[in-house]
Amino acid sequence: MRLRVHTLLFWPHLVAGLLAGLIIGVMSFTGLALAFEHQILNAADRETQQVALPALGTPRLPMDELIARVRAARPEAQPSSVTEYPEPTRAVMVSTGRTGGVYVNPYTGEVWDWGAQGWRSVLHVMEDWHRWLGAQGDNRPLGKAVTGASNAIFLFLAVTGLYLWWPRKWTWRMLRPSIWFRRGLKGKARDWNWHNVTGFWLLPVLIVLTATGMVISYKGISDLVFTLAGETPPTAGGPPPGPPVHVPVPPPGSAPLPLEALFVQARQQLPVWENITLRLSGGKAEARKEGLAASTFAIREPGGWPLFAATQVFVDPYTAQVLRKDAFADLPTGNRARRWLRFLHTGEALGLPGQFIAALGCLGALFLVWTGFCLSWRRFFPSKRALASSSDHSGA
């Protein structure tokens, strides 16, 4: 019975690996390249972010003035968020879209581009290939569909691979070739050993990476996370922003307060903070039209848990009154679970050790793709020596 099930699973496992192996290899390679993206950029850009301390007593420019300097220096760019840090020698960062941004000297208003442009360009290409196979524009949904399907196939390969690996007898002699690398092997024996050992040790990591990837790729699976938690799934994909915040209607003729006044309020919400980010409206005129929307600050504190969490602070733009403050623990269960799944996929949920484990999983996946292709090649196109050996055994 077990032999029959083994055969029924072996061929779908082999065919699925051949069909999706190349895409899985691309996703694994790019995933490995992106594993330490933030650490790479922070290290490469550290000097670019630094500013000289001015004379004692020199005040920082108001946040409104800094953003005005950015708009004047980069009229083609549209600031989308602004982030400040507590260190007096660190520049304020203004993002201008998904991948662009500038730094601003908080004392002089000088504006300059982000550094590490070479690294940013390479990592941007890696992300494009990891998520959309390098597709651009209208072709991205197709690229996402292919990567999502390949990720699902990889999950199937991981689960069926466990059954195919399972020893017939649990003896050390039968188990050892499947759980540890052996020296001196060549050809098919070496590939089989590498394939099984890599799959055995990295199976939990690969299941986590592929299962969380399914949640990211398919809205229906993402919605299931919220449904299981007894919550209504969000309209858009990904974690929802939370329930709407009601901003009291201001008296007629009232104007929003300067951003600096809102930042003053945000800085007071946590005793120690690592950075504060404010999401911006598209422009001044647009901001006036959307004046009844709360100003949303994301405040990260050092040593906070989970490591990826930030406290969301909603401030009335007319009075600077805090309307609501959402710590991670305050979020609904489905929202928290969805965020955990997002950052488990990259390993960032567990910090640097988690990123290392995720990178190791990507490296192992490359080994599995390579050895799987080699084993398939030898099965369908055996060498003359292998054919001769097979003939001798059948004759005996």
Rank of each mutant, 00 (worst) to 15 (best):
R4E: 11
H6Q: 12
P12D: 07
L19M: 14
L22D: 06
I24C: 03
F29S: 10
L34Y: 08
Q39A: 13
L41E: 12
D45E: 13
D45W: 06
Q50V: 13
G57E: 08
G57S: 09
G57K: 05
T58R: 12
P59E: 10
P59H: 04
R60T: 13
R60M: 14
L61E: 01
E65H: 09
L66S: 01
V70E: 01
R71F: 05
A72D: 12
P75C: 04
P75T: 04
E76A: 15
Q78M: 08
E87Q: 15
P88C: 08
P88H: 05
V94C: 10
S95Y: 12
V104R: 01
V104C: 10
P106Q: 07
Y107C: 08
E110W: 06
E110Y: 05
W112R: 15
D113V: 04
W114K: 04
R120M: 03
L123E: 03
H124T: 14
V125A: 12
W129Q: 00
W129Y: 10
G134N: 07
Q136I: 00
D138R: 13
R140P: 05
G143M: 08
G148R: 04
F154A: 03
F156I: 01
W165E: 09
R168V: 14
T171E: 12
R173P: 02
M174E: 15
P177R: 14
W180H: 11
K188M: 02
W194C: 01
H195V: 08
F200S: 00
W201L: 01
L206N: 02
I207G: 01
L209C: 00
T212G: 06
V215Y: 03
V215L: 11
I216Q: 10
L224S: 15
L224I: 09
F226I: 00
G238D: 06
G238Y: 07
P239K: 08
P241V: 11
P244S: 11
H246Y: 10
V247P: 06
P248E: 09
P251C: 00
P251V: 14
P252Q: 14
S254H: 09
L259Y: 02
V264I: 10
R267W: 07
Q268F: 01
E274G: 07
E274M: 00
N275V: 01
I276G: 07
R279M: 13
L280G: 01
L280M: 11
K284M: 12
E290N: 15
G291L: 03
I299C: 03
F308Q: 11
F308K: 10
V315G: 04
A320R: 02
V322C: 07
R324N: 10
L331E: 13
W340G: 00
R342M: 13
H345R: 02
T346L: 02
E348N: 11
A349H: 03
L350K: 05
G351P: 06
L352K: 10
Q355G: 03
Q355E: 15
G361Q: 08
A365R: 06
F367E: 02
V369D: 06
G372K: 01
F373H: 07
F373I: 09
R378F: 08
F381N: 06
A386N: 11
L387T: 05
L387M: 14
S390K: 12
S391W: 14
D392E: 11
H393K: 15
A396R: 11
